[in-house]
Nucleic acid binder design. Structure first.
Ligand SMILES: [Mn+2]
Ligand SMILES: [Mn+2]
Length: 559
DNA sequence: ACCCTCCACGCAAGC
DNA sequence: CGTTGCTGAG
DNA sequence: GCTTGCGTGGAGCTCAGCAAC
């Protein structure tokens, strides 16, 4: 029944309402047993409203913020605002004359309308009508008494009580949206963009019980976490948010990940603002990948060199990733030097063949090099991560989109929910093994080309359709030995997140000789990044053809 | 695809 | 008056 | 002077209409 879902057609003037109601139905059907009574009541009350009121509600939900000037809420497909809004006001979902601050007042109303409303006050402060809006705001902010600057009734600023309305049920709608998408970032526009064909999603069969949360308490924690995240984005006060963080959801890995990621993000915020003790505490509590590495850096910055050194040594015994190992290789000698004064011999970086070019200045150094090296017989592509990860994604398509329990729970997923979990590959080991085996039988070529046609345009975490074309693909399959692909794909599988980045900018093909060459381009002032160094070392280790091309601009007399 | 990933830029420390 | 940036909309 | 490590910031359907300057 959930197969091949399509959003409401856009020629239906109420398409947005149809989509919203479809979500309400989906949520009630699949999560009804987990929903608190308040949310269930909200859904039922919403569905019982007159159509124009439902439409108006959804229009407001989809717009930015919760404050609206009624004259911006007249929609031709709905009743006039005055009529459509009445049932919403009856329920208290929409209220007139909300409390707003001076800043909000200035944000919502145009300068010319403020001038007519505010004329007396502006004159009293000696602000001429020719002043800029931002200047007027600054003046008022500085000159008004603090209690006058507190949020207060819109009418107390001199507005008519009907001049502004507030939607009060945004929190309920957010919670339903978060539950439907299983995350905090996807929104109602998914439906339109899908219907417009901008996004196409792989149709996946959903297990009826494939859900991100399974208990009432888990749902509550999930909502709390996303609320924290939202408050942080809105209030910019992570200190307050940290207080409201729910207890660590240890027993549920999906929630635990959300929890630790939020902690990590807050820590990173404090690290950037220089509140290093706070950063340290949060990094310490977080088990999100990279947290230990940042903690080490913060300890170092705080001057806790011994603590950092001990932790770094422990980390080196069991690095969580190659990236961390690489970071430790820099950090440990540095710490040792500060602690003991001993100077360490630096280990030489892997040898990578270099190419040095002097080219006329160009906005894109990669394109300049590609154009310079490319010939009709030996084309160069500016591929970066797109080609190799694309081949990987096309070959592994069926493994990636295998509908395991918990992997897919709504129709707008570009990949499985557990893609970056430690056990993602393990759970699909048979599938991945079978597809990897095609690289030894030779069947992989057909699989990749077939999927390139069959799945064309469908969202995938690994396939950037816009960057691939048939010819590039065919040449890649001709020129890159299956053994080399196998090595790269193994490395992707070891860390799907970190290892799908940092691949060289350019690839050149020699179809006649069935060979290829990878090239990382560096313009003036650009240096190899950590993940690029890791890939270069890997390519060299396996005798795969790669080099780095350093470019300088030729002196030009023009301009 | 959970703001990332790539890049350019800019700063400070160390040679 | 153009221009720049934001919002709403499909 | 240079190099090196490290951090920051911007861009991410596309079009029309409007507000602000
Ligand atoms: Mn690049
Ligand atoms: Mn490059």
């Amino acid at each position: 029944m959930t197969l091949n879902f399509t959003p409401a057609p856009l020629d239906d003037p109420l398409y947005y309402l149809r989509n919203f109601e479809w979500v309400l139905g989906w949520v009630r059907q699949r999560y009804g047993d987990l929903l608190p009574p308040a949310e269930l009541a909200f859904i039922d009350q919403a569905l019982a409203l007159p159509e124009a009121s439902r439409g108006l509600l959804v229009r407001m939900v989809m717009r930015k913020g919760d404050l609206f000037r009624p004259e911006t809420l007249e929609y031709p497909e709905l009743e006039p605002f005055s009529k459509a809004s009445a049932p919403l006001q009856q329920l208290g979902w929409l209220v007139e004359d909300p409390q707003i601050s001076l800043e909000t007042l200035f944000r919502l109303f145009t300068w010319s309308s403020l001038k007519t409303v505010f004329i007396n006050r502006l004159e009293a402060h000696g602000i001429p009508p020719t002043a800029r809006k931002s200047e007027a705001l600054d003046r008022l902010r500085g000159e008004l008494e603090p209690e006058d600057l507190e949020p207060r009734l819109a009418s107390s600023w001199g507005l008519a009580p009907q001049a502004l309305v507030q939607l009060t049920v945004m929190p309920q709608c957010d919670r339903l949206r978060w539950l439907f998408f299983g995350n905090g970032y996807q929104g109602w526009s998914e439906f339109v963009l899908t219907e417009l064909g901008l996004y196409q999603y792989e149709p996946v069969t959903f297990d009826e019980r494939s859900r991100p949360v399974h208990k009432r308490t888990e749902l509550e924690t999930f909502w709390q976490l996303l609320e924290c995240r939202q408050q942080w984005h809105e209030d910019e006060s992570p200190e307050a948010v940290l207080e409201q963080l729910p207890p660590e959801p240890e027993e549920q890995p999906w929630l635990a990940r959300h929890y630790h990621r939020l902690l990590f993000k807050m820590a990173r915020h404090w690290e950037r603002t220089g509140e290093l003790e706070r950063a340290r505490d949060s990094y310490q509590r977080s088990s999100y990948p990279g947290a230990r590495g940042r903690l080490l850096r913060v300890l170092e910055r705080l001057g806790y060199h011994e603590t950092a050194f001990e932790l770094a040594q422990a980390a080196q015994q069991a690095p969580e990733s190659e990236a961390e190992r690489q970071q430790l290789e820099r950090l440990l000698p540095r710490l040792k030097r500060t602690l003991t004064g001993e100077r360490q011999r630096r280990t030489a970086p892997p040898e990578v063949p270099e190419l040095h070019l002097i080219l006329p200045q160009d906005p894109s150094v990669e394109r300049a090099v590609a154009a310079y090296l490319s010939t009709p017989e030996t084309p160069v592509y500016y591929a970066e991560n797109t080609l190799l990860t694309g081949l990987f994604g096309l070959l592994m398509w069926d493994a990636i989109f295998e509908p395991l329990p918990g992997a897919f729970f709504h129709p707008f997923q570009r990949g499985p929910a557990d893609l970056y979990w430690p056990d993602f590959v393990e759970r699909r080991a048979d599938r991945f093994d079978a597809l990897m085996a095609q690289l030894t039988t030779g069947a992989y070529r057909q699989t990749i080309l077939d999927n390139f046609e069959r799945k064309a345009g469908r969202q995938s975490p690994f396939v950037a359709w816009g960057a691939l074309d048939q010819e590039q693909l065919t040449q890649a399959l001709e020129c890159i030995p299956a053994k080399h692909l196998a090595l790269c794909f193994q490395r992707f599988l070891q860390d799907l997140k970190a290892n799908c980045a940092g691949l060289p900018d350019l690839i050149q093909f020699w179809p006649d000789e069935r060979r290829y060459h990878l090239l990382e381009v560096k313009g003036p002032g650009d240096r190899l990044q950590d993940n690029q160094k890791r890939w270069l070392a890997f390519f060299r280790q396996h005798q795969m053809p790669v080099s780095v091309c350093y470019v300088r601009w030729s002196e030009s007399a023009d301009d």
